[in-house]
Amino acid sequence: MEKILYLAHTQQDGTLPKVALETLSAAIQITKDLSGSTMMVGLIGQNIQPAADAIAASGASKILGVSGADFAQSRYGSDVKAAEAIANAAGATLIIAPATSRFSRALPGVAFRLKAVIDTHISGIQTTGGTLQIQRWYYRQRMIATLSRTARPWMLLVDSGVFPVWQGAKGTAKVEAVSVALSEKEQRTRVTGVEAPSADAQTIRPDAALLFVAGAGWTKKQPDGQTHSKEAETLILGLLHKAKASLGSSKSLVDQGAEGEAVLSFISHLNQVGQTGATPRHPKGLATCCHGEEPHVVGWRFINERRAVNLDANCGWAQGKADVLYVADAFQVMKKVNELLDKS
């Protein structure tokens, strides 16, 4: 029997982020699975009423909230204080929250203050024989652990793409305000803005259906003995635009910039998947001109359907890891793909 607190924050527009709605599904499921448990909701943001109304049908026994201008933006000092206050007010034994950048920063500090334990990057939750177990990856997505804890409170930060988005009717929710006063020390930081990537910058966009992974082969010498970086850029940008794909890159391609080699102008370390890069979740992934072993390949561990275009039939990036490997020249294939996408 647990006292569950589902904790979320609003976005700039007052709504809850998608991952928060996914995490709500998880919280509701756990409340159901652990019989006798109750769920409360805690919300943080400038104006939380619309968000509370949006999840009014979630079955929460109580909705607690910290709101006001001080809590509009993501700031460690104020976020920690707000979450701590809600958690104390709720007296929760389990705290479930989405792994947004804001909460990923703040909640570990809250856990410390509450003398709670915390697990992050949770990619699965289950109850076995009345015991709550979670799944998370270790060593950069190279091994998966199933674990549980007896200590309480236990705080769980759930990754995006793991649970279905909660869907329920809007309603009118009663929010119990929790008042939080910030000290001067907690206001030393001001958020001055958000810098969006420039319009032509290509980044990993979590909402894209397709992740296109470019490997170092794009900038290597081609059969005519020359490199064709410009052509590669055109082909890749063409595909990204036409297929509305997100762009990932292998580490070796990202690293080439520092070696004075011809590189693709729009690739930066933000595009890297695997190793020190991201492990994004997309329904589909298409890898081109990539080679690499396990640490690189983990970059597309969470891609559901995977295909690859490569000249080597035994490529470690593809064998046993992709569903289909096309052994062909990626320049020629992508040119044709772009032509066909244009037509359709």
Binding site: S101, R190, G193, V194, E195, A196
Partner: peptide, 12 residues
């Protein structure tokens, strides 16, 4: 780094 390839700029 925050969501969507964006940066949050803060002054401390």
């Amino acid at each position: 780094r925050i969501e969507g390839g964006q940066y949050q700029i803060s002054s401390c």
